[in-house]
Design a protein around this nucleic acid. Structure first.
Lengths: 215, 215
DNA sequence: GCCAAAATTGAGAGGTCTGTCAATTCTGAT
DNA sequence: ATCAGAATTGACAGACCTCTCAATTTTGGC
């Protein structure tokens, strides 16, 4: 029942394993109660260490929040990047990225919610995720698939749409096709024809899942 | 230097004035430090009353949060509704609503930020604002201006775009034309032609402002 | 101006949280 | 197996927070 950080650190030395356990406990607490309400005492207790040990690994809550959030974001980006390495069509790449990002965040709600909460507390995290997303948007403009100028605002809006989708999914207000529907809206926003937007976003796919792909 | 709730309650009885002072102080605290970090002690102190007085008006922080957030949202909705009573064109109405909402939230950043923070804590608040926005979307579908089906997801996405715009504006990352640009993206998403979307969202207008219109 | 009712005050009980540190236990290189 | 250094423990000081309540001040209808 240990988390993803711990699973990945299983073969490492003690210090790294303890750190990973704290990060899993923190992600779980951030997701369940929100960042502010998660106390260091509670995180340490959930990780089965004393509270003093927390301070041997992190200076304060901000530091573990950054470690957790950037760790999750980087992990998501790597998985998605790898999974779409063989997709050439820009519209397909954008819709695939959106769908997979939402699917990953949903397959491990702890991570998804922790991420949506952290984005507003860590502007740098938002920029890092957006840089990742922007590559495929620029690509689509270069090859003529998209007919709008890609600027910071557009990328921010895409981000806000994905965050809303993760929130709706995690709170039970939306079902699993929300990723495809958000992707379709995004493609229309990019100037793709309605027919092609629908085709590119509702095609068959294999959703990634955190637990599934690390095994 | 007192806030908007207080200004509006100036001619009322003492109890109402004290309550309004607490609500202004709370909005200010929620906007500056976030909802969780704002303590009741600090709110009472900022409102120049003792902490015991707080409990004479509100049961706890949730109750004052709801009062503040619904108060702001209702105020925004009324002002915008009135200001666009003579606009007939559906595309114009939608873009006007978006622009004015962002302009109002920006003209009083305290209110704008308090609102964006409260939306995630009060699902009922989000639904109320969305109901207000949805009327013009449905109208546009009926009269043939918009060519997409309006469902809950679409309205949620519009909301997320507006919240992102308010956040960017309040954090200094965007300038004042962001409202028009967001409105333009929204119209394109609704199936309006790019040319008409641009025309309807970038036209001349008179931005509302909280302080300005109550005087 | 009077005075009952309403509103406000502020001290404090009881609770939680952060961050520290001396004492203890564990780890892994030899 | 040994042991020096690394990691962990848990009690605790100091800070802050919520909510209560008896005492005090203010309000506004007459």
């Amino acid at each position: 029942m240990s988390g993803v950080f711990a699973a990945r650190a299983r073969s490492q030395g003690k210090k790294i394993r303890t750190r990973a356990g704290l990060m899993d406990a923190a992600a779980e607490a951030f997701a369940r109660t929100g960042i502010e309400a998660a106390s260091i005492n509670a995180i340490a207790h959930a990780a089965d260490v004393s509270n003093g040990t927390f301070y041997n690994h992190f200076r304060d809550k901000d530091e573990i929040l950054a470690a957790v959030a950037f760790g999750i974001a980087r992990d998501f980006a790597e998985r998605i990047d790898e999974a779409m390495s063989d997709i050439e069509d820009s519209a397909q790449r954008v819709s695939f990225g959106t769908r997979q990002f939402i699917a990953l965040a949903t397959s491990e709600p702890t991570w998804g919610l922790a991420l949506t909460r952290a984005v507003w507390a860590l502007p740098e995290l938002r920029r890092e995720v957006e840089t990742f997303a922007r590559a495929d948007l620029d690509r689509g403009v270069r090859d003529g698939t998209f007919r709008v100028e890609i600027d910071d605002l557009l990328v921010d809006l895409f981000m806000s749409m994905v965050l809303m989708a993760i929130y709706l999914r995690a709170s039970g207000e939306a079902n699993e096709d929300i990723g495809a529907r958000v992707a379709e809206h995004q493609l229309r926003l990019l100037g793709v024809s309605p027919a092609r937007a629908r085709r590119a976003s509702h095609c068959d796919w294999v959703p990634l899942s955190i637990t599934g792909s690390s095994q």
